Simulated scan of single mutants.
Amino acid sequence: MASFAERLRKRAGRLSRAQRQLAEFILHNEPRAAFMTAARLGAAVGVSESTVVRFAIALGYSGYPELQRDLQDQLRARLSAADRLVLAEERGERAETILDTVLRTDMDNIRATLTSLPRDRFADAVAALQRARAIYVVGHRSAAALAHYLGYYLQLMLRNARTLTQSGTVLEELMAAGPEDVVVAITFPRYARATAEAFQLAARRGARTILITDSVVSPLVEDASIVLPAKSESPSFADSLVAPLSLVNALITAVALAQPDKVRAALRELEDIWDRQGTYLKEERRSERIVGPGGPGTGDGLA
Rank of each mutant, 00 (worst) to 15 (best):
N29A: 12
H28K: 14
L302T: 07
Y149V: 05
S116R: 08
I210R: 03
V138Q: 09
R17G: 15
I57R: 14
V263G: 03
A77R: 13
S16G: 11
R268Y: 14
S225A: 14
S218I: 00
E288K: 05
T195S: 10
L201C: 06
D83P: 03
Q74F: 03
P260T: 09
V137E: 02
L59A: 07
R131E: 14
G139F: 01
P244R: 04
F237N: 02
V291K: 04
M36D: 04
Y149P: 04
L241A: 06
E49F: 09
Y152D: 12
E222S: 13
A256E: 09
A132W: 02
G42V: 07
E222L: 12
T165K: 02
D300W: 14
N109F: 01
Y136D: 07
D108I: 00
P296N: 04
R76A: 10
A238G: 11
L302I: 07
R32S: 04
A82S: 15
I226A: 00
S142V: 12
A82I: 14
T195M: 05
D70Q: 05
I135R: 07
Y153Q: 13
D239G: 05
A198Y: 05
A303I: 13
A88I: 11
A258F: 02
V221N: 02
S232M: 08
V291L: 11
R289G: 11
I135M: 08
G295E: 06
E49V: 14
G46Q: 10
A238W: 15
M157E: 09
V138E: 04
H148P: 03
A12M: 12
F122Y: 01
A192V: 11
A202Y: 03
A127N: 10
G178Q: 14
A143R: 02
L79P: 01
V263K: 04
G294L: 13
A12V: 11
A127L: 08
R111G: 01
A192W: 04
E49T: 13
E173D: 12
L171Y: 13
A82N: 11
S3R: 15
A125E: 02
I210S: 02
G63P: 04
G178V: 09
G60H: 13
G168C: 06
A254D: 01
S116W: 00
L75H: 04
S16Q: 10
